[in-house]
């Protein structure tokens, strides 16, 4: 009788253990997936920028600096190889972009161009998507970190060396600020 009880308790522990381990792996994969989402959106922004510059070139003859600024920031962001450099370069690119959209206000012809309007919608949506994928990533990281610090999952996490993930913070504080537009 006592053997059966012992076996039952053991079974409960084993199944609990397996369940916790599996949920931890699932959560870690969610974090990874959320990270790749950010990457997808950043890449998309890089793809859109040449078209934007191409469209704007004809209208903005006197804003050569702004346009080359964007192009340079883009190639820098594409060349960045580690996470820290990437965060910084992407931040600089966002800064250049918002500067550009402020300048655009002075070019009514450009603003009336349907091609440009569609691009602007795509780009601002991509900016939002970057922000939301970052938000989702941080949500997932928070959830995962809570899980590996809480009892009893912290025991399993300790055994299999689950490390807390890092939050994705902005390198460039200026990006947090929405540019002030004066009319």
């Amino acid at each position: 009788m006592s053997l059966i009880i012992f076996l039952a308790i053991l079974a409960i522990f084993v199944f609990g253990f397996i369940g916790i381990y599996n949920s931890l792996v699932g959560l870690r994969n969610r974090v990874k997936n959320a990270w790749s989402q950010i990457d997808v959106q950043l890449k998309r922004r890089h793809d859109l920028i040449p078209n934007l510059v191409e469209t704007a070139k004809g209208y903005m003859k006197h804003e050569h600096d702004t346009l080359t600024g964007i192009t340079e920031a883009r190639s820098k962001a594409m060349g960045a190889d580690n996470v820290a450099a990437k965060g910084q370069a992407e931040g600089a690119l966002s800064g250049a972009m918002s500067k550009f959209f402020v300048v655009v206000e002075n070019y009514p012809d450009l603003k009336a161009n349907t091609n440009f309007l569609a691009l602007q919608e795509e780009l601002s949506s991509t900016e939002n998507k970057i922000a939301f994928s970052r938000q989702n990533y941080n949500d997932q990281v928070l959830f995962f970190n809570n899980k590996i610090q809480m009892f009893p999952s912290n025991l399993v996490a300790g055994m299999f060396n689950f490390k807390p993930e890092e939050f994705f913070e902005l390198e460039n504080e200026a990006e947090k600020e929405v540019p002030k537009v004066s009319f």
Binding site: A34, S125, N128, K129, F132, S133, Q135, N136, D139, Q140
Partner: peptide
């Protein structure tokens, strides 16, 4: 309606 699709995709990303 491209904007609607963009907004839905943004929220899809935010909601995971």
């Amino acid at each position: 309606h491209p904007q609607l699709f963009n907004v839905v995709e943004e929220m899809k990303i935010a909601a995971g």
